[in-house]
Structures are given as C-alpha cells and as structure tokens.
Design a protein around this nucleic acid. Structure first.
Length: 442
DNA sequence: TCTGGGGTCCTAGGACCC
DNA sequence: TCTGGGGTCCTAGGACCC
C-alpha cells in the first residue's frame, strides 16, 4: 500500500501557524508579484474565490468579507515544508517528496487493517508538532492514493481514507469524474467526455489499446493504476533536474536595457546557485524577455535566445557574461517588458565536464570563489554577495505588499508575544508586514 | 492599473547512418 | 515500368503535474 500525505491549503495554513488570529478567517495567498490567488483557506473557498483568479478581480469580495491577503512567503513555506517532510520520514522506510506540500509514503510494511490508524497518528503528530493539517489517502497504487486523498479531504472522514477492497474502490471510481484523476488534464478530459467516458470507472474499463493510441503510454499507466496495477514507482531519491529556470514578473514594466540587465544577471546568479547545489553544469543557457500579453493594445515582442556554452559550467561569472550578452542581442527599444527569465539546459554532472583546450574556465580558483560565495550567502542570507551587474536600484523588483514575517528563518522576524495590555500594532497580524532589510537569514 | 513560477514526459517527423 | 529495410538522434510541440 502507498499513502499520499497532502497538506491542506498549504500556504494559507502556513500563514496561520504563527498567526492564530487567522483561524476561522478567510485567508488567501497570492502568487509572486501579488498576481493571482494560489492558496485559499476553507472559508475563502466558501466565499467563491477560485484558484488562480487574478487578485484585482476579487477586490470587492476581499474588502466586503475582510479576507486576509498575503504575498507568497517562500522562506516560511519552504521551512515548514522541510519540517513536515522530516516528520513524515520518521513514519516510513521510504518517502517520496512529490512537491512542497505532498509526499508519497511506502505503507507496505503495515498490515492493511492498521493503515488508517497509523495515518491518523501521523496526522495528529504533524498537527501537534508543526501546526499543519494534513490529509492522508491510502491505496494500492499512487493514482489510487491520490483519489483516496481527495476523499480524505472531504468532510466527515477525519482526514484519512483507505481503499480497502477492489469492490469499494470501483464504487468510488463510479462517483468520480475522470477530470479529477491524477494525470488526466483538461484536454484529455474533454476528449474522453466526447467519447462517452465520463467517470474514473469508465476510464478504468476502457480498452487498453484504445487508451494507448489516444492518450499514449502515460494514459495507459493511469488506467492500469486505477485498476490497482502499480505502474508508477515510488522515487525515494531526488534525481538531478534536467533544466533549471529562474524567472520573474516585474513590479513595474521595464523598457530600458539597464534594469533588464540587472534582472537577468540576478536570475542567472540564482540559476548558477541551483546548478551548484545539485552538482550540475550547464551546456546551454536561454534568456527570454516578455512584454505583457494581456495588454494586447501595446506592441508585443517576446524574444528568446539560446547560447551553447563553449564549456559546460556552473560558474556564476561565466554564466552572467553569456546571459547579459544574449539579452543585449535580443533587446529592442520601444517595448514595455513585464517579465524576464533564464533557463539553464543540457545539464551534466559537474565532474564530467569536457574541458576546452582554448578556455581557462573552471579553474580551482574559480571553483573556490563560487564555494565561498555560496557559503556566505547561505550563512548571512542570499544576496549578501552579489555581482555589481545585479545593480542596487532594483526598479524591476517584485510587488510584495502583504508579506508576513519569515518567522522561522530570520532572527529579526521571529515572533514576538506581547504580555500585558499592549495592543498589537495591527488588529489582524501579531506583527504587521514590514519592509525587508538585508539581514542574516538564519 | 492590476493576470505566477517551475518542472517532466511523450510523440511525430525530419535528418542522418548502414 | 520498376525504387528496401532497419536503425538512431534531435527537436518542436503538446500534454501533464504542483
């Protein structure tokens, strides 16, 4: 058996951990640049706030219902996620961290009748030790564990659900729309409906060759998994990423080359750091800039350029040099750019780099420089060491107007509890969002 | 005015090899 | 007039996930 533990409304729940005044309140968390809703408490869902809706479209709803709104605080969510995953790891011999808020747990060591009780124990532990509510679905395959998790999230199941028999599983699948199945997206769902396949059960009974022909082998795997045949293995070890991307929308659109260069240099630095973290080197690099596609009345120009690097590298200075040159080559005056990004591709292990006779890249000195930068930034906070090319004005920086404190990763933002009659400075938050200073992260 | 960010996998078709 | 058989590698595009 496989269990899927999925944190409920994860980002919204994280905001509540250090701000219990938010319990029972509608809470939403916005995407980067305060753009769209990406997490909602149950109360916010009940108000009809949909996933991914742009924030400006629900402004009235927010004011009328006093919805508590937060900018994304990934320092906080990432740290709480680590705590959740570390705790989960103590409950199973084998854990696959599937996303920031989800993990698959190997439950095969448990006699099946005990699975539900064990899962309830996990839930209680997470709620008590970390303060994050979790739902746990259990089934013979990953796909069925996903379905079980959906059922566990509904009310009246105390957050745990197990598929115990094939007959019970079939009964539930008859009530589940095929759209809801993990691996069936919008396009395939529409196509299946058009072919009279409406429920997950219908899909599980479709002829294998027909499924493979139209939905490829991935669709066939999903069908088999719904029938209880395990096709998707638990992946305990995180493999190295094959591409790494850092991109952001700007708080203000940018038309000049200089701020764009600063942004691209900053994103490249981030990519290089991620590369070194997984001990990879890039053979290619892509830079892209985008105008705002929603402003169709404005001139549109969204070019990109791929550079094949002379020698595979994860050296920040080398990568920034190529990235800024690529930007310069695609930049044109007269456009308002809304977003930029850098992708490093063709990643190979850093110890398998083929050196170039004519290049001095990758010397021991440069490697030590990068190690030192990483160490300082880890210890004293990212951006402690920067390139001059990254600039200091940051005209392009994200909009983050509703940021909560980094309660667990920054000494200066640690929770303060007022004892006595002092009123908190803000009725909603124990500590109001405040401007970030460049201080140690941990 | 205001619309996120980061990934993976599969397939078809073209170019190439013998 | 008649024009084989068996492969690999790469890329773009499309699907999916959180």
């Amino acid at each position: 058996m496989i269990a899927l533990a999925d944190c409920n409304n994860f980002y919204a729940s994280c905001e509540r951990v250090f701000n219990p005044g938010l319990i029972g309140q509608p809470v939403v968390v916005l995407s980067n640049n305060d753009g769209c809703v990406i997490s909602r408490s149950e109360e916010a869902k009940k108000l009809g706030i949909k996933m991914a809706v742009p924030a400006y479209q629900i402004e009235k709803l927010i004011i009328k219902n006093q919805v508590k709104v937060f900018s994304s605080n990934y320092a906080l969510y990432g740290d709480l996620s680590n705590r959740v995953m570390n705790t989960l790891a103590g409950f199973t011999p084998s854990l696959e961290i599937y996303s920031i808020d989800e993990s698959f747990l190997d439950f095969s060591f448990l006699p099946p009748p005990q699975a539900a009780d064990y899962a309830r124990q996990i839930r209680r532990t997470l709620l008590k030790n970390i303060g994050i509510p979790v739902s746990i679905g259990i089934g013979p395959t990953k796909t069925l564990a996903k379905v079980a998790n959906k059922i566990a999230k509904k009310q009246g199941t105390d957050g745990v659900f197990v598929f115990e028999t094939a007959a019970a599983t079939a009964e539930y699948l008859q009530k589940l729309m095929v759209d809801e199945v993990w691996g069936i997206g919008r396009q395939h769902a529409a196509w299946l409906h058009a072919n009279k396949i409406h429920t997950a059960y219908d899909f599980s009974q479709a002829p294998a060759h027909w499924v493979k022909k139209h939905l490829s082998v991935t669709g066939l795997r999903t069908k088999d998994e719904l029938c209880g045949i395990s096709c998707i293995d638990l992946e305990e070890f995180q493999s190295r990423k094959k591409t790494i991307c850092t991109s952001r929308s700007f708080g203000q659109p940018q038309s000049q080359l200089e701020p764009l260069t600063e942004a691209v240099a900053t994103f490249t630095m981030k990519c290089a750091e991620k590369l070194r973290h997984q001990h990879s080197a890039a053979t290619e690099l892509m830079v892209f800039i985008l105008t705002n596609p929603f402003r169709s009345e404005l001139p549109q120009y969204s070019p990109s350029r791929v550079i094949r690097l002379p020698v595979a590298t994860n050296d920040s200075l080398e990568l920034v040099k190529h990235a800024t040159a690529a930007l310069k080559a695609i930049y044109r005056e007269g456009y308002l750019f809304k977003k930029a990004g850098v992708i490093v591709m063709g990643l190979i292990p850093e110890n398998e780099v083929q050196l170039n006779l004519f290049s001095s890249s990758g010397t021991p000195q440069q490697r030590r420089l990068m190690e030192t930068i990483d160490r300082l930034n880890r210890h004293y906070g990212s951006d402690t060491i920067q390139l001059a090319a990254q600039g200091t004005k940051r005209k392009w920086k994200l909009r983050q107007e509703r940021l909560s404190p980094r309660y667990t990763t920054n000494w200066k933002e640690i929770l303060v509890i007022n004892v006595g009659n002092e009123k908190a400075p803000d009725g909603d938050n124990p500590q109001p969002p405040r401007p970030r200073t460049e201080t140690p992260e941990s």
